[in-house]
Write a protein that binds this DNA or RNA. Structure first.
Length: 855
RNA sequence: GCGGCCAUGGCGGAAUGGUAGACGCGCUAGCUUGAGGUGCUAGUGGGGGCAACCCCGUGGAAGUUCGAAUCUUCUUGGCCGCACCA
């Protein structure tokens, strides 16, 4: 390229161009939309899960916000009125940890982090409307949340109940599950205890049937997320069965269990209760060994995963219950795998039909009666060994149920229970009410005042917001709000006698359960302006799969509740959901377990790694989630400074499908960088002379319009890595078409820029300004349209298979008839050889694809 | 433990049940360049063959089908969630 004009080969200067175009978009207010979408506007609300302000953006954020920005820019070009806001999920534990560790106030720490992260996000060139920004720790936000809390109270959706928390007896603090490590407090190292506290709950279980049923209507949600939610809500049909105590204990004459398998009642071997069950308490009062066993169970903490993974253990209380059908007596055990929160906190153990019960029975030498066998098995000899039989089968050894299948058995058993008055068929839900109380400072204060005379009194409207006090002491363990000298002492709003403020704050999931609605009217003097809420539902929500259950379910509950109160126009918050994968990076670990930085490691030609300083072998972790503790983070700020925002965005889109985990690689970024430079060169080096090779022109125009169609489909369908591949192909086609007429080359280049603009918006603007000086901002241009005439092919290539194996390809006119096609196929030398003279018995033709000859 | 998902060349991946490996990274060879973290050209799943071609191949095993990366069953490995991390 010696003959290029001076300066034409100059590199694309992203460092100068990117801030310039960011200002241009801002000056033109390209991304601002009215609070109330005008009548007739095609509104489209794009939202990425807002970040926790940790202080630095990480690659997961870059990925999340790049994906959202592609959607926002694409939809804008397709003529939608796009709302695309950003804010901060700003309450939570890390700010308190910083306060305790470094003496900085959580608010100060959080707002400094927000300022730093906002600046980093702005460098990415996201098409965000920053005017709508807020942080959940702003009193303007959490004050409105307090109004919602009181509205929920009035609607009967708030309850006060007791529940268990992890308690660190040394620190005198409630611990989050993640702060419990191997049953001990993360700071004190003391064994955790379960402690019962009176706390506030949202009655999400009232909505369980609705939340389940409405999943069917969420047609733009991933199936797996809907499945996980359905399983979480956990509707199950079964029975409650009352077992009379052989002898009443502390006045308790019966135990109620929930079971989904009433058909196996005759297979009972024991009854087991949770460690928190009243009968367990009664046993503990009589027997110190029972008390010790319960204490052991409590040491497991509240995490369900930890409880269920623990070795199955039990303790025989000595109490006995009578079987409702036979009157036979069975022992009552306390078992560490029975959950107080599910069903009634008690189960009947049927070892032959349930794996956990079987493991338990084998461990403690309890009988294993056989009551269900596979169809066709011999009842005289059938017996489960170490594996329970849980499939459908035939009921045996079960009196009136003998010979029935599982489903009929359930119905018959329930009918009998109801006739005897010993139980009834019920629908049970796994979903529990949502405990929102947190004994922490950095959260939204729950707007309630406790009065000895009047009970829990809502804070009156004119006293809202209840603002967090600034002067708090983090040198002591526990909740600073609770030991603040004055804050909690207030008169009762009802009787004016001395009373106490609620010192619990809200779970941060509450903050994120309505922020998407607040974005519609972020400065309103009420939580949500009804007219502005017509932006809802969010048309496309994007975030991590780790939120598939809790956050999304809570947000659905909030929206449903607010819809019921008339505050929102829709019962569902997110019409479309996309869940992205994590960003991972190779990690290096020495034999002694130290995580090494990439700079400390040498790689040889075979890909083996050694520690440079010592020569010792190093284990290479296949991509692991980026984490400071593993020394495998990549700082987006450094990448953007070195390669530019467009390169970072392009690489993160091109590497793999967005729903999968992606591995960050330096060479991949360099490849993306080279492509941005290549696009710039194609435009900058455009030879403005006409070279009228019409055939080359037609070929290029076909490539252009096929790219328009393919890239449009790919952006539309979240196949972002495919969009990138098709754009590479278009760039290749342009590079190969030097002899095509100028108009065709210009058309192709312009299409390339506009199709790539959602991903590399700055370069698209800079190159467009060069290609067509004086053109409008690409950010405001409509989406290119493919010309259908140029999408049609004159001929098609068909694969010819013999018995399903490829033997030849034939080129036929697009409108060739089948007889011609089969004749051509069978005339191929290779096909004849494969047929080996055998007659063709069957001919299959899939138009445009394949011919298969069956001999 | 329970629930959910994923698996294709050296690497990331593409492929309405219809030519497996598009596109990119990396690598190899050549050219270009004063230089290269530059550009261009060609090649690049494994095996056999001078070639035409042939055989094998989508974590593993079996099945459905004219035809399976794609559907079904089982299995192995990895990842996500499990209610106080966000």
């Amino acid at each position: 390229m010696n003959d290029m004009p001076e300066g034409a080969s100059a590199r694309y200067d992203f460092a100068a161009a990117e801030p310039r175009w960011q200002s241009a978009w801002e000056d033109a207010r390209c991304f601002a939309v009215p609070d109330v979408p005008p009548a007739g506007a095609r509104k489209y609300y794009v939202l990425e899960m807002f970040p926790y302000p940790s202080g630095k953006i990480h690659m997961g954020h870059v990925r999340n916000y790049t994906l959202g920005d592609v959607v926002a820019r694409y939809k804008r070009a397709r003529g939608h009125l796009v709302m695309h806001p950003m804010g901060w999920d700003a309450f939570g534990l890390p700010a308190e940890n910083a306060a305790r560790e470094r003496g900085v106030h959580p608010g100060e720490w959080t707002y400094a982090n927000i300022a730093a992260m906002r600046a980093e996000l702005k460098r990415m060139g996201l098409s965000l409307e920053w005017d709508r920004e807020f942080a959940t720790c702003d009193p303007e936000y959490y004050g409105q949340q307090q109004r919602l809390f009181l509205e929920f109270m009035r609607a009967g959706l708030v309850e006060r109940k007791e529940s268990w928390v992890n308690w660190d007896p040394v620190d005198g603090t409630v611990l989050a599950n993640e702060q419990v490590i191997d049953g001990r407090g993360w700071r004190s190292g003391a064994p955790v205890e379960k402690k019962k506290l009176s706390q506030w709950f949202f009655s999400i279980t009232k909505f369980a049937p609705d939340l389940l049923a409405a999943l069917d209507g969420l047609d733009r949600w991933p199936e797996r997320v809907k499945l996980m939610q359905a399983n979480w809500i956990g509707r199950s049909e079964g029975a409650r069965v009352r077992f009379a105590m052989a002898e009443a204990v502390d006045g308790v004459a019966e135990v109620e269990v929930f079971t989904t398998r009433p058909d196996t009642l005759f297979g009972m071997s024991f009854l087991a209760v949770a460690a928190e069950h009243p009968l367990a308490a009664a046993a503990a009062a009589r027997d110190p060994k029972a008390a010790a066993f319960i204490a052991e169970c409590r040491a497991l903490g509240t995490s369900e995963a930890a409880i269920e993974q623990a070795e199955k253990q039990g303790f025989d209380t000595g109490f006995r219950v009578c079987h409702p059908f036979t009157g036979q007596e069975y022992p009552v055990w306390i078992a560490n795998f029975v959950l107080m929160e599910y069903g009634t906190g008690a189960i009947f153990g049927c070892p032959c039909g349930d794996q956990r019960d079987l493991d338990f029975a084998r461990k403690y030498g309890l009988p294993v009666p056989q009551v269900v066998m596979p169809r066709g098995a011999d009842p005289a000899t059938f017996a489960v060994g170490t594996e329970a039989f849980t499939d459908d089968g035939v009921i045996i050894n079960s009196a009136f149920l003998d010979g029935l299948g599982v489903a009929e058995g359930k119905r018959a058993a329930i009918a009998e229970l109801e006739r005897l008055g010993a139980g009834q068929g019920v629908t049970n839900w796994r979903l529990r009410d949502w405990g929102v109380s947190r004994q922490r400072y950095w959260g939204c204060p729950i707007p309630v005042i406790h009065c000895d005379g009047c009970g829990a009194v809502p804070v009156p409207d004119d006293q809202l917001p209840v603002v967090l006090p600034q002067d708090v002491d983090f040198s002591r363990p526990g909740n600073p709000l609770d030991h603040h000298p004055t804050w909690k002492h207030v008169p009762c709003p009802r009787c004016a006698k001395p009373a106490r403020r609620e010192t619990d704050t809200c779970d941060t999931f509450v903050d994120s359960s309505w922020y998407f609605a607040r974005f519609c009217s972020p400065r309103a003097q009420q939580p949500i302006l009804r007219e502005a809420a017509s932006w809802l539902p969010v048309d496309q929500y994007i975030g991590g799969i780790e939120h598939a259950i809790l956050h999304l379910l809570y947000a659905r509950f909030f929206t449903r509740a607010l819809h019921g109160m008339g505050a929102l126009p829709t019962p569902e918050p997110f019409a479309g959901l996309f869940t992205q994968g994590m960003v991972t990076h190779a990690s290096f670990r020495a034999a002694d377990g130290r995580w090494l930085y990439p700079g400390e490691v040498s790689l040889d030609a075979e890909g083996n790694a050694t520690e440079t300083a010592t020569g010792a072998a190093v284990a290479i972790g296949r991509g692991e989630k980026m984490s400071k503790s593993k020394n495998n983070t990549v700082d987006p700020g450094a990448i953007i400074a070195r390669y530019g925002a467009d390169t970072a965005r392009w690489f993160i889109l091109s590497d793999n499908p967005p729903e999968r985990d992606m591995e960050w690689s330096e060479s991949g970024v360099q490849g993306a960088f080279r492509f941005t430079q290549r696009v710039w060169r194609l435009v900058a080096n455009l030879a403005e002379v006409d070279a009228p090779d019409e055939a080359a022109g037609r070929k290029l125009r076909q490539a252009t319009h096929r790219a328009i169609a393919a890239v449009t489909d790919a952006w539309e369908g979240f196949a972002f890595n495919v969009a990138v591949a098709r754009l590479h192909e278009l760039a290749n086609a342009i590079a190969d078409a030097a002899r095509a007429p100028l108009a065709a080359r210009q058309e192709a280049l312009e299409a390339l820029l506009r199709l790539a603009a959602p991903a590399m918006p700055h370069l698209a603007e800079e190159a467009m300004a060069r290609l067509r000086p004086g053109a409008a901002l690409v950010a405001t241009m409509p989406w290119p349209e493919a010309d259908p005439a140029l999408l049609k092919a004159e001929t098609v290539t068909l694969a010819v298979q013999v018995l399903g194996k490829l033997r030849a390809t034939i080129e036929v006119p697009a409108d060739a008839d089948e007889a011609t096609i089969f004749a051509l196929a069978e005339a191929e030398e290779n096909v004849k050889r494969a047929l080996d003279g055998k007659p063709v018995r069957k001919r299959i033709h899939v138009p445009g694809r394949v011919v298969n000859l069956v001999a």
